[in-house]
C-alpha cells in the first residue's frame, strides 16, 4: 500500500520545523502506529470546540482557521494554521476538551496523531516536551500581542496589521495571499463588521496600498501598510 509510505513522518518535509525535529525518523514511524491521514474539503470542521481530546492534528497541506464560537456572537478567529502547524497541544496534558474549533479554509490535508501515540513518545523522548513548551510560549505570545492591538488600536490599524501578518504567513507568493471567503474572516479576526472591512479595503485600494482582484488580495505597498498599522 502506497498510502502508508505517503503518511510516514520520515518522508514529511514539515518534520524538520516541527516539535519532532529532534526525533529519529525511525522512532516517529514506529511510535506513531495509529497515525491517520485525512482530507477535509473547504468549510469542513476538523476539530470541534468542546469535543474530548482525541489527538494532535498536524496540518499537512492547506489552510485552516482556528476560532471560538460563543452563543449569539460572531465567531472569533485567533489565527490561521498553515502546513506544519500543530493543533490540540494545549489539550494534550489534561486530556480535556478542545478549547477551539478548526475549520478548513481551503481543501486541507491533516495527520491525526492519536493520544496513545503521543503519550508514549513523550514518555520516551522528553525533548519533545521541551519543544512543546516553546510552541505554547509562542502561541501565548502571539495572543497577548493581538490582545494589546485589539484593546488599543483602531480598526484601520488592526486591519493593516492583520493583512501584514497574513502576508508573511503565505509562502506561495511574495506579497500576495489568497483570501477565500475572506471579508467575513477578516472581520472575525478583528471583531468588527464586514461592511467596515469592505469600506477600509476599498480605501486601501484607492490609495494604491492593496489590489483586490476576484478573491486575491495583493499588498503593493508594504511600507505604507506597516505605517498605518502603527498608527501613522
Amino acid at each position: 500500500m502506497n498510502d502508508s509510505i505517503d503518511i510516514s513522518c520520515s518522508k514529511c518535509v514539515l518534520k524538520k520545523s516541527s516539535i519532532f525535529k529532534n526525533c529519529l525518523n525511525t522512532d516517529l514511524d514506529n511510535y506513531f502506529s495509529e497515525k491517520k491521514q485525512m482530507l477535509f474539503t473547504k468549510n469542513k470542521i476538523i476539530i470541534r470546540q468542546g469535543e474530548v481530546f482525541d489527538g494532535i492534528v498536524c496540518i499537512r497541506e492547506g489552510v485552516a482557521k482556528v476560532f471560538q464560537t460563543k452563543k449569539d456572537k460572531e465567531d472569533f478567529i485567533f489565527w490561521f494554521a498553515k502546513p506544519g502547524d500543530l493543533l490540540g497541544v494545549d489539550s494534550f496534558i489534561n486530556k480535556d476538551v478542545y478549547s477551539y474549533s478548526v475549520m478548513a479554509v481551503e481543501s486541507t490535508k491533516i495527520c491525526l496523531i492519536s493520544k496513545n501515540d503521543i503519550d508514549n513518545i513523550v514518555k520516551i523522548k522528553p525533548e519533545i516536551s521541551i519543544e512543546m513548551i516553546k510552541l505554547l510560549c509562542e502561541r501565548i505570545d502571539y495572543i497577548e500581542k493581538r490582545m494589546v492591538s485589539i484593546a488599543q488600536k483602531g480598526i484601520k490599524q488592526q486591519l493593516a496589521e492583520v493583512l501584514l501578518l497574513l502576508s508573511f504567513k503565505s509562502s506561495s507568493h511574495a506579497n500576495s495571499f489568497i483570501i477565500s471567503h475572506s471579508v467575513k474572516d477578516l472581520a472575525n479576526i478583528i471583531g468588527t463588521t464586514q461592511n467596515y472591512i469592505y469600506k477600509l479595503l476599498s480605501e486601501f485600494s484607492q490609495n494604491k496600498i492593496v489590489t483586490t482582484e476576484r478573491r486575491v488580495l495583493k499588498i503593493i505597498d508594504v511600507k505604507k501598510l506597516s505605517k498605518i498599522s502603527v498608527g501613522n
Partner: peptide, 23 residues
C-alpha cells in the same frame, strides 16, 4: 509536563481574554 500544564492553562486564559476584548 507540569510546565506544559501551566502553559496550557495560561493559553486558554489569554484566549478568553482576547475574545472578550473583541466581542
Amino acid at each position: 509536563l507540569q510546565t506544559i500544564k501551566l502553559l496550557s492553562k495560561d493559553l486558554r486564559k489569554a484566549e478568553q481574554m482576547i475574545l472578550n476584548m473583541a466581542q
